[in-house]
Design a protein around this nucleic acid. Structure first.
Lengths: 210, 210
DNA sequence: GGAATAATGGACCATATGGTCCGGTTGTGC
DNA sequence: GCACAACCGGACCATATGGTCCATTATTCC
């Protein structure tokens, strides 16, 4: 099945041209919302950045909220796809270190600016938009599951102690990552993110076997 | 000296009534910005919540940005005062656990909603307002110093290994706290915050002596 | 190739929002 | 008690912003 149209239940017919327009809008909005924040991104910003007109926007979306929800879905999909690739075969502490380094490097390219696409939207929307909060909570849960599954593989192959709680460790690693993003963004320096992730990894290290 | 008027260099004379009005505005704004976010809080919201008029606002503040900076200063002062009280005499692992529990309890009263006043403002403003970013970075640094100083007292009294880097541990604890706030806010459940802080505390525990 | 529908351009609208202005009142210092 | 400045109420303004509408052009399907 090709995209059961989660956000458009009636699923109107869509020509290739229409799909391209819709996609341009979502991509432009995703970029702007990462850089400026959701609330500070206006429909006019999106219109200009996507080279579309007002009517095109409202032809494809009910209102700004619908766009926001679509952006969340797209970001979640992107990030989970990227993390799936990085974590799907994780089964060693070295692999966890590589994961850490990849995240730090990506963030250091912009001196920590912008932070995590999911984290910043969660911060801005969690208390204002229940649908957004729920979607973001689901995305975080899925992300943590990718980590936890990797930790469980480490338990299965005798790398990590069986007594360790993989889910809790995954939550702790995610908190260190998100807190690291925030401190790095505020300091305009990735160092705090490195320190935070390293401290979390050190804790995992204490749970390794032998 | 009584408040060297950081935000109002000319430091116009201020009657008690004027000071009270100004304070009501800042307090109302601080509350609204915590609950709804900075961008989503309008001057009209603030005006209504503080029972003031437009002219009163512009009599005391140059513009909305000035208000935001004032709110940041007030929140930083509040939080640092509170944390100073909690951490000034910290010199044991038990004390660190009490610190953790106090934070978790405060957050659990609202099911994690709203998050950290400094963290949420940092997320929203760090990439948009350099002055705000700088002030928030300073507040985080001061906060981390309170923690680090406590850890150094633990080193001085033989509780914590001298080899441990107190500053890095403090940064890691702060990241766990902020990441915990974010995940708790998104999940509407303090559990992730508990897990994150406990994992960070476990790491400190591995550095205790004996 | 023609009807039906998707897609588009862009003028237009109502309201929200940050900000200004001015007349009047209250408080302060001498 | 008088001059002056702080303080205040609220009307007013320009613009930003989310959203509507309609005429016109592309596509698709039969």
């Amino acid at each position: 099945m090709a995209e059961p149209a989660l956000s458009t239940p009636p699923a109107r017919r869509l020509t290739p041209r229409g799909a391209a327009t819709r996609d341009r809008i979502v991509q432009a909005a995703a970029e702007l919302m990462l850089v400026k924040g959701v609330n500070a991104t206006t429909l006019d910003d999106v219109r200009a950045a996507s080279s579309t007109s007002k009517s095109q926007f409202y032809h494809h979306f009910a209102d700004k909220d619908a766009l926001v929800h679509e952006v969340i879905a797209v970001r979640a999909k992107e990030i989970l796809a990227r993390e799936h690739q990085r974590l799907a075969r994780l089964n060693s502490f070295r692999g966890l270190q590589r994961w850490r380094t990849a995240l730090v490097q990506a963030s250091s390219l912009r001196h920590g600016a912008y932070g995590c696409a999911l984290g910043s939207m969660a911060n801005e929307l969690a208390d204002q938009d229940e649908q957004a909060r729920s979607a973001l909570a689901g995305a975080f849960a899925a992300w943590e599951t990718l980590i936890a599954d990797g930790l469980r593989r480490m338990q299965a192959n005798g790398t990590l102690k069986p007594g360790a709680d993989a889910d809790d460790l995954a939550t702790g690693l995610m908190a260190a990552l998100q807190g690291g993003y925030l401190l790095a963004e505020t300091a305009h320096d990735v160092r705090p993110m490195e320190i935070a992730l390293d401290m979390a990894l050190d804790q995992v290290k204490t749970l390794l076997i032998s």
